Structure formats: C-alpha cells, structure tokens
Simulated scan of single mutants.
Amino acid sequence: MIDLDIYTLIGFIGMACIIGAYFYLTWKDDPNPFILHGTNLAGAALLTVSLVVHTNWPSLVLEGFWAAIAIWGLWKALRSRKAAR
C-alpha cells in the first residue's frame, strides 16, 4: 500500500502544478509567462518539500534546476514588462 503522508500529498500537488503548466503551455498560443513560470516554480517548490522528507537525490536536483529555470523565466518576463513601459 502507498504511504500517503502529508509530504507525499504536497508532492502530488506540486506534480499537478508542473503538469498543469505544461498543459497550459501546449494549450495556449501565447501563454502568459507569469502564469507559466509561476506555476512551474510553485510545483518545483512543493515537490522539493516532498523530496526533502522522502529523499530522491536525482529528483531533488532536477527540482532545483526546474525552480532556477522558472525563476529565470519570471525575471525575463519582468524585464520585458518593464521594457514595454
């Protein structure tokens, strides 16, 4: 039987965020970068919470890169918004 403690449930919510962001990217012709990268960052953060408790090093490192890329995407979107003003 699967042990569904609070950290596993948090991880599932994070997974849903990342899958939702990918679906949004595929669905929209012109996705909002704040929604896309913000949702990816939230998903990476939630999965990281889960992975700190239930450590899986390759997945934990992956989430670090995923979060860094999302932060970079948010930074680029903020920079573009400022340049447009």
Rank of each mutant, 00 (worst) to 15 (best):
I13S: 00
D5F: 04
A42S: 13
D5P: 03
F34T: 02
N40K: 15
I19P: 09
A44F: 10
D29L: 07
A16I: 13
A45K: 08
G38E: 00
V52G: 06
F12M: 11
V52W: 12
M15N: 08
C17Y: 11
A44T: 07
V61N: 04
L41F: 13
L46S: 08
I6S: 11
G14H: 04
I18T: 14
A21K: 00
A21Y: 01
S59L: 14
T39S: 11
N32I: 02
A44V: 09
P58Q: 03
V49N: 03
A45R: 08
F65M: 07
I18G: 13
A21T: 00
P33S: 09
N32F: 05
A21D: 00
I10K: 10
L62A: 02
L62Q: 05
D5K: 05
Y7G: 03
A42H: 10
T26N: 14
A45G: 05
V61L: 08
L9A: 01
C17E: 09
V61S: 05
A42M: 14
P58G: 01
L46G: 07
F23W: 12
H37T: 07
N56V: 12
G43H: 09
I10H: 05
F12Y: 11
L36T: 06
M15H: 08
L41C: 09
V52I: 13
D29A: 09
V53K: 06
T55Y: 13
S59I: 09
M15E: 05
H54D: 00
L25N: 12
F12W: 14
A45N: 03
W27D: 06
Y7D: 01
V52H: 12
